[in-house]
């Protein structure tokens, strides 16, 4: 199993879309840095994560959510993890694939 990390906002880059073509076939998604904007509900790009959630787990890095004031705006079903949780995830999965 692969942990896919995305660190770019979906409004600026195709990283998330590309990742989501591949990731659901045996992997989980971890949104970090500006990648966390994809987890905001009711935006032009929310559907990507809403659909992804039906097929895989989606984690978001809590410090990045807090830093950007997004705490109350998230799509239900995404899992918040802190730095220790992120480290743990990288150990749980076989490989980490970063999309940047």
């Amino acid at each position: 199993m692969i942990l896919h990390t995305v660190n770019k906002s979906p409004a600026r880059s195709n990283c998330l879309k590309s990742c989501l073509r591949i990731a659901p076939h045996g992997g989980a998604l971890m949104l970090i840095e500006d990648g966390v904007y994809a987890s905001v509900n009711n935006t032009k790009h929310s559907q990507l994560i809403v659909d992804a959630l039906t097929r895989m787990q989606v984690f978001v890095l809590e410090p990045d959510i807090k830093a950007r004031g997004l705490s109350g705006l998230l799509i239900p079903g995404v899992s918040l993890v802190g730095y220790p949780g992120f480290v743990e995830l990288t150990q749980t999965y076989d490989t980490v694939q970063s999309w940047y």
């Binding site: 199993m1 692969i2 591949i22 990731a23 076939h25 992997g27 076989d94 490989t95 694939q97 999309w99």
Partner: peptide
């Protein structure tokens, strides 16, 4: 592509 990624020891992007 997903299988390919899963088979690797190392992935460089």
């Amino acid at each position: 592509a997903s299988e390919l990624l899963g088979q690797q020891d190392i992935i460089l992007n």
